[in-house]
Each structure stands twice: as structure tokens, then as C-alpha cells.
Design a binder for these strands. Structure first.
Lengths: 345, 345
DNA sequence: ATGAAAGCGCTAACAG
DNA sequence: CTGTTAGCGCTTTCAT
């Protein structure tokens, strides 16, 4: 009753069945145009009948290409980055599939208390063991030791995130224009009649944070609105956001908040609830990331086009791995604003 | 100035450098006990100097084991499942790493409007092409066509999720005792003095949903509390949860809600906000999944031990792929209750 | 304890 | 257009 799990068919099996040589079968798969139509048909029929699928390992060994792309899941990813990571991974898997690639997840390894994570942890082995063809690097917000390190090792990779201050960088990258997103958010609040629009951002040192703040500043300048006393820089937690919002409300009476993250925006919502003020009607609030939290709480938020990011990353990957390496380049995509109750009067 | 990217060292390179045969180097890596200490040391030194890492493709071809485990990311994952997926994937990657496995993500493929997704979409090719050694199957909540299908194909896999009604199932699985989690949640609300505790669940047809509901029912029975008029079954959205909660509050005056998901619990919070009632102080609310949303909104929630689930899954995987296949078995883990403001008076 | 030979399944290069 | 030859880097016999 037990149908013995026969070993999968090989090229040789197909060749024999179709009455051709192994090479011809190989061509039928990788270069069908080279075959005469009738031969091709015969081979394809044999493939069908034997339910043949090429052995990846053998192909990989021969062609030195695994069609695998490595993606490192950070050691206990930063909360903020985490909020959108899920969507990004989905998008990347989908985009890769269409290009014939699979995503290989790996971990940076556990980081001991008080130790800095090895920025290249895990990359090296995967690369040298020829387990992956290339990497997608996402955590460029840490500064960019990994892009530099990978470049030194001549590892093929594409980055989600600009090479901010590394002018020597010469790898392909895709990023989202955070400043433009925040600017649109600020414009939106202005259009709702707000003039005292506060910025709730992160502590200095994050290029991403500085970029987003710039969008607020630009918009305020455009409308000749004062920004003095209207900003705070805190760590990316709900509590920090709540406290900072409360202080700002007490000291300089903003009527709206633009935040560097949904997390901070939720903090603002908490502060408003504590004082019995209604988001939207009383005080406008906009977050960043369009996380599930924003969707569920009715929080207006800047949404990164992660699906598009993924498609561009995969396109860059293909170009990178194709024979004639074209010049590296960067792509900057525009986010969109998801307007919900928290910013509408 | 360009340091030519020399091809990685091979076994032969190491052998030559160490003055031994290739085979001895192979043994040094896979079976060090076979070597004389001094030979071993010499080989290891050569490995070090040449920065040698075994070529995965060659090893894979030879041993027929890729050390890759496939995980399918569902086509536009159900919202609920999604909320905890991120944490699970992290946990799985981490657990796999320690066992020398990597996670290969693949997509079920896009599902056309109105079409049912192919439950085995993507699995087959990966398996026959020897790209992965095994699978982790997560979406058993769909019923379990994939476990049945995979079993038929004799594909090695372990499941996160019980084989509910498939008594013939003989694969290893790990699951979380949802009923126990909900029971604990209900007990907690009872300890807070609540007697009219409502259940807000999903529409029938989901074994997971029925299981969770059973926990509520059991707890209510234990305390001889009536459940009549105290339950609603809706689809898993915030709006549906809000409406159902409002109706229940109007018709049968519950003082607390236990919900099948955080999504529904958020709906309850919305309903309370609309009537000016305070979660915790006025009406107790407990969700399920301990998602970011719960953490950020101060929602008490049942938390699945996903890290532990991952560890058990990987252990099962190792046993499955090891020579002497031990009998399959299941593991049922206990969730814990994360108590926050929404359930405390 | 070490070495020699064979071959996993495939494709690149060349020959016919 | 099709077939032959060779070899990717490794591990598994089987000798020594």
C-alpha cells in the first residue's frame, strides 16, 4: 500500500524517455528557441509525464547562482522599523517571486546585553558559502556600517534606504522621500485651518528623523508660520510621545501635531484623551508608517509605498546580477497620506 | 587598486595548503574525531588562513540536504493572522539559526478575485526541485487541505496548528491552547468582580474560533454564570466588533468583554468611547494576540508563546529530518495573559 | 588515520 | 540543431 517515494526524475530520465541527449533536454528548458519544434514538443511531453523539475542544487553548483536573496531580520528589530517590516517582507517576497528569486531569511545573531551588534553578522558566511546571490539591506538607519562593509567585500547588494552621508557609496538603493511625506502631512493640516502645527520627532542622530523633520520645517516656512517652541525630540515610545505632547500643549498651545512615527502619534492621542480633547475635532494628529495601529485607531498617517519599493529593489537586483552591470543608481519614491479621523475637523 | 574578487577557496585549496588530501579536510570539518590532533590543527590553520567556507551548493548536491526550510507567506494574509506573524517569523528564524537551518520565504502566488487560493501553491516545485528540506505550515486555520496534500506527497513538514478534525494526520505539530488562554482571561475578569462577561467571537466555521470560545464558556460554567444573550459572532474587523459590542451593551448589559482577537477588542474600545465609558474602570476588555495594537492601546490580551512555538517546531523538524524518524507527535503550549489597563478597575 | 576513485545532476564549450 | 566531453565542490565508499 505504501507507494515508495521514488526519487525525482533527472535530466537523464527525461532524455531517455524523449530519445534525445541530456543536453537537448537542458536546452529545451533554458533555451527552447534552439530546438526544432517537434523535438521540443517531444521533450516537453516527457518532462510532463515524468513530472520533472530541475534539481536546484545541481543547477546552483554549475551556474554559481542560487536565485536566493538574503534578508537579515535584525536582532530584536527597532520598534519603529518593525511596524512596517511585515508589509515590506511580504512585498519583497512577492516581487522576488516574479523575478524567479526566493528570499532567504537570516538572523544577525543574538546580541549580548550592552554589546553592539556586529553590523556584518551573518552576511559573510552566507556569501562565501555561495548560499545567496545577493542581499537586500534594510537597516541603513543604523548609520551604514553594513553597506560599507558589504561594499568592501564586494558583496552584491541593494539597499532600502539612502546612503545618507556616504558620498562614496556606489550601490543601488531605493528609498522613500520622508521629507515630502511629512511636508504633505503638514500641508494637509494647514488646509484644515491649523497654523500652530507642532513637530514631534526623534532625538538627533537619525538621518531619517532629520529628513522627516525637514519636511515639516519646509512646509511651515512656505506658509511663513513660526516654529519656535513647537517641536520636541524624544525617543520612539508611546510614553515619551505622550509626555512631550502634554508639555507642548501646556507651553505653546499647538493645535496640531505631525509626528515622526505612529508610535509617537499614539502618544499624542493618549495625551489628548487625558485632557478630554478629541483628535481631529480639537487637535489634528498625523503619524508616520501607516501601521496597523494607525489603521485601527483612525490615525492619519504617511504611508510608504513598500510594494513599489520592493519592485524597484528587485529590478536593481536583477540588473546587478546580470552580466553587463549597469551603473549603480538610486530611486526615491513618494509616500502618500492616508487621511483618517485624527486630522479632520 | 582593484583587489580582484578572488574566487572563494575550495576544499582542494585547503588540502594543498595543509599538505593533506581533500578527504582529510572534509573529515576535519564533518568528523573531526577521526583525525589525529596535530593533523587536525594543521588543517584548521589552513582553513583559517584561506578563510574557507564550504560551498553549500556542492554539499547540497552531494548530501541532498539544503538546510533550508520553506515558509509560505499567505497571499494577503488574513488580518488576524498577520498581527502576530511578524513575531513568529522572527522567532522561527532565530530558532532555526541555532539548528543550522535557514528560512526560505515563498509566496502562495497571487489569488485572482473570487478564486480560491491553491492550497498547495508553491509547495510542490520547491520540494521536487530539492530547494528545501521541509516546510513549516502555518495556515492550518483554513481547514487543512495543505497538510493533507503535503502528507500525500510525502513532503516533510511540521505544522503550527493542530490537525483539528483530521484524525488520520500523522505529522508533528505545535499549537497554542487558545481555550486555556481565553479561560484565563475570563477568570481574570471574574476576579475583577465581573459577572456578566460577554464573548465576542468569529462567525462559525473556524476551529480556532470555536476553541477560543470554549474557554470562555468553560469558565462561565465553572462560576455558574449565565451566558444567554452574552455572545456575538461577527467577522474579524474593528467595525464589526464595535457594532456587535454596542448591540450587546444595549440589549444585555455586559460589564466585560472577552474577544477572539485584538481587532474585535479594539472595536469594543471604540464602542465604549462612543458612549463615554472607560475601558477597565467601567467595562473590562480583553483581546487575543498581544499585537502591537494591544501594547500601544493598553489592551489586556492573551499572548501566544511564539518563541517557544518556534523552538518546538524546529526541534520537530530536526527529528523529522534525522535518520531514525521517531513517531510523530503534537505539542500544546500554554499562552499567558498580558494584563493592562483595559481590564483593571 | 589517511588517500584514491567515483559520482550527485546539471550546464558550458565544443564537435558533429 | 543535436550529441559528446568535462567539470562545478563536495562526500561516500573502499583501499591502504
Amino acid at each position: 500500500m505504501v507507494d515508495t517515494p521514488r526519487p525525482p526524475a533527472t535530466l537523464a530520465d527525461v532524455a531517455e524517455r524523449a530519445g534525445v541527449s541530456r543536453q537537448t533536454v537542458s536546452n529545451a528548458i533554458n533555451n527552447p528557441a534552439l530546438l526544432r519544434p517537434d523535438t521540443l514538443a517531444r521533450v516537453q511531453e516527457a518532462i510532463e509525464q515524468l513530472d520533472y523539475t530541475p534539481n536546484q542544487a545541481a543547477r546552483h553548483l554549475r551556474t554559481r547562482s542560487s536565485h536566493l536573496v538574503g534578508l537579515r531580520l535584525g536582532p530584536a528589530q527597532e520598534f519603529t522599523a518593525n511596524m512596517a517590516m511585515d508589509r515590506f517582507v511580504h512585498a519583497l517576497v512577492e516581487a522576488s517571486r516574479e523575478a524567479g528569486y526566493h528570499i532567504l531569511l537570516f538572523s544577525g545573531g543574538r546580541v549580548a546585553e550592552g554589546e553592539l551588534p556586529d553590523p556584518l553578522g551573518g552576511y559573510d558566511d552566507l556569501l562565501r558559502s555561495t548560499a545567496v546571490d545577493a542581499f537586500v539591506v534594510t537597516d541603513t538607519y543604523l548609520g551604514n556600517p553594513q553597506t560599507v562593509g558589504l561594499a568592501q567585500r564586494r558583496a552584491p547588494f541593494v539597499a532600502f534606504g539612502r546612503p545618507w552621508d556616504d558620498t562614496a557609496a556606489s550601490h543601488p538603493w531605493v528609498d522613500v522621500d520622508g521629507a515630502a511625506g511629512v511636508e504633505a502631512a503638514t500641508e494637509h493640516l494647514r488646509a484644515q485651518g491649523h497654523e500652530r502645527i507642532a513637530w514631534l520627532g526623534w532625538q538627533p542622530g537619525s538621518r531619517i528623523g532629520e529628513d522627516r523633520r525637514a519636511g515639516w520645517h519646509r512646509s511651515m516656512a512656505t506658509h511663513a508660520l513660526s516654529t519656535t517652541g513647537l517641536e520636541a525630540a524624544v525617543s520612539d515610545t508611546v510614553d515619551a510621545g505622550r509626555e512631550a505632547a502634554a508639555t507642548l500643549l501646556d507651553t505653546s498651545g499647538p493645535t496640531a501635531f505631525v509626528c515622526a512615527s505612529d508610535t509617537l502619534a499614539v502618544g499624542v492621542l493618549h495625551a489628548l484623551a487625558q485632557r478630554g480633547q478629541k483628535p481631529g475635532a480639537d487637535v489634528g494628529v498625523v503619524g508616520f508608517d501607516d501601521s496597523q495601529v494607525a489603521q485601527v485607531m483612525g490615525l492619519t498617517s504617511v504611508r510608504q509605498p513598500l510594494e513599489e519599493v520592493a519592485v524597484h529593489l528587485v529590478a536593481a537586483l536583477r540588473a546587478l546580477l546580470a552580466p553587463g552591470r549597469p551603473a549603480s543608481d538610486g530611486v526615491l519614491l513618494q509616500p502618500s497620506l492616508r487621511i483618517r479621523a485624527s486630522s479632520v475637523r
